Simulated scan of single mutants.
Amino acid sequence: MNWINNVVRPKIRSLWSAKRDVPENLWVKCPETGEMVFHRDLEANQWVIPNSGYHMRMPPKERFVQLFDGSDYEAIATPAVTQDPLKFRDEKRYVDRLRDSRAKTGNDDAVLVGAGRVEGNAVVAAVQDFDFMGGSLGTAAGEAIIRGMEEAVARSAAFVMFTASGGARMQEGILSLMQMPRTTVAVEMLREAGLPYLVVLTNPTLGGVTASYAMLGDVHIAEPGALIGFAGPRVIEQTIREKLPEGFQRSEYLHEHGMVDLVVHRHEMRATIGRLVRLLTHAKGTALIPA
């Protein structure tokens, strides 16, 4: 009995522990085709499903790595804000939701800002993280975007905004909605400085974000298949009681109807942004843009 207790059982426990330590997300399922892709292959392909071309959500820091020359960028510190100005509570306290999102993403809030060079051009970029409370626009996100635009002016750099959001953050009420005019004023600051403002619309971009800075760019680029609009298609169908056209509010539909300037595959995004910045700043080098 001592041999079973002292040797066999500890061995079984160690094997069970090792099995439980294996990550559960080694394989990622394509939402369109159901194809299973090994997560390292997906990361190596910039979070694009190889066969279907479906663009998965991409972590903000990975965006910076893929965007900037040599994956070299400077993280820009963003202003601190009051965490829970309205002491909001629904099913959970707002402070608890913030804590959970920070633990999940490793970020303080939904927007990260970085600065570097894209094909030799000075660029400041901001990225919204949909995994942080749906990329919702609150005071912290608004302050981060404004800080990024101020940094672009200080560096005489182009500003690139990668949007991914469900809209305003309801837990902050009117304070969240005030970020729409505040970011709009910051966009005007870029224009007065004569600096390019490029918007990359990723899946999804909705609500107050679409109604403000997401649609104020000099050029609007969209990733393939991205859902872009104010209200979602299901809400619209329930309101007007009509079936919407196929692909309504998707990148390709909006490009066809003049709301989006370019639909660009993620593999071509860096080169396209580099060409656009050269074109808009009259920098030397080719400024050709793919049709």
Rank of each mutant, 00 (worst) to 15 (best):
Arg275His: 14
Ile236Cys: 10
Met36Gln: 10
Met269Asn: 03
Thr163Trp: 04
Asn51Pro: 00
Ile289Ser: 06
Cys30Lys: 04
Gly247Asn: 04
Ile145Asp: 00
Glu256His: 13
Pro224Ala: 12
Val81Lys: 05
Gly173Asn: 10
Leu201Lys: 14
Met1Pro: 06
Leu288Cys: 10
Pro245Met: 03
Ser176Val: 13
Glu192Asn: 05
Lys243Thr: 15
Arg117Thr: 14
Val199Arg: 10
Ile273Asp: 08
Thr33Pro: 10
Arg275Met: 13
His39Cys: 14
Met189Tyr: 07
Met133Arg: 12
Gly142Val: 11
Lys29Phe: 08
Ala141Tyr: 00
Gly208Glu: 09
Phe162Met: 11
Asp96Met: 07
Met259Glu: 13
Asp129Cys: 07
Thr272Arg: 07
Tyr213Gln: 02
Glu237Arg: 09
Val8Arg: 06
Ala77Pro: 00
Ala144Ser: 12
Gly229Glu: 00
Ala222Lys: 09
Leu279Tyr: 13
Arg117Lys: 11
Tyr73Asp: 01
Pro50Ile: 01
Ile174Phe: 10
Lys29Gly: 02
Met215Pro: 00
Ile49Gln: 10
Thr205Glu: 01
Thr272Glu: 08
Leu175Glu: 11
Met269Tyr: 07
Leu206Val: 07
Arg9Thr: 08
Ala211Tyr: 00
Ala283Pro: 03
Asn203Thr: 09
Ala193Asn: 03
Asp72Gly: 04
Glu151Asp: 08
Tyr54Pro: 03
Pro224Trp: 13
Glu252Trp: 11
Asp129Met: 00
Gly120Ile: 08
Ala75Tyr: 01
Ser136Pro: 05
Asp84Arg: 05
Ala291Tyr: 12
Gln171Ala: 15
Ile76Thr: 00
Glu188Lys: 05
Ser156Ile: 07
Ile12Ala: 15
Val124Glu: 01
Arg97Phe: 04
Leu177Cys: 06
Gly148Val: 01
Ala140Cys: 05
Gly166Cys: 08
Ala164Glu: 06
Phe130Gln: 01
Arg97Trp: 09
Ser176Gly: 15
Asp21His: 15
Gln238Phe: 13
Glu237Gln: 15
Gly225Trp: 06
Phe159Thr: 03
Thr202Ala: 09
Ile273Leu: 11
Glu143Val: 00
Leu280Lys: 05
Trp47His: 14
His255Pro: 10
Gln83Gly: 10
Arg97Ser: 05
Glu151Asn: 03
Ala193Trp: 02
Ala164Tyr: 00
Val127Cys: 02
Thr281Gly: 10
Ala193His: 05
Pro79Ser: 01
Ile236Gly: 11
Ala154Arg: 09
Ala231Ser: 14
Ala75Lys: 09
Val185Ile: 09
Pro85Tyr: 08
Asp69Arg: 02
Leu112Thr: 05
Gly217Ala: 14
Phe88Ile: 02
Leu42Arg: 00
Gly173Glu: 11
Val8Trp: 11
Met1Trp: 12
Leu254Tyr: 10
Gly148Pro: 01
Trp47Thr: 02
Phe248Lys: 05
Gly114Ile: 00
Leu175Ile: 15
Thr281Gln: 14
Arg102Ser: 14
Ala271Leu: 07
Met178Asp: 12
Met56His: 11
Ala157Thr: 12
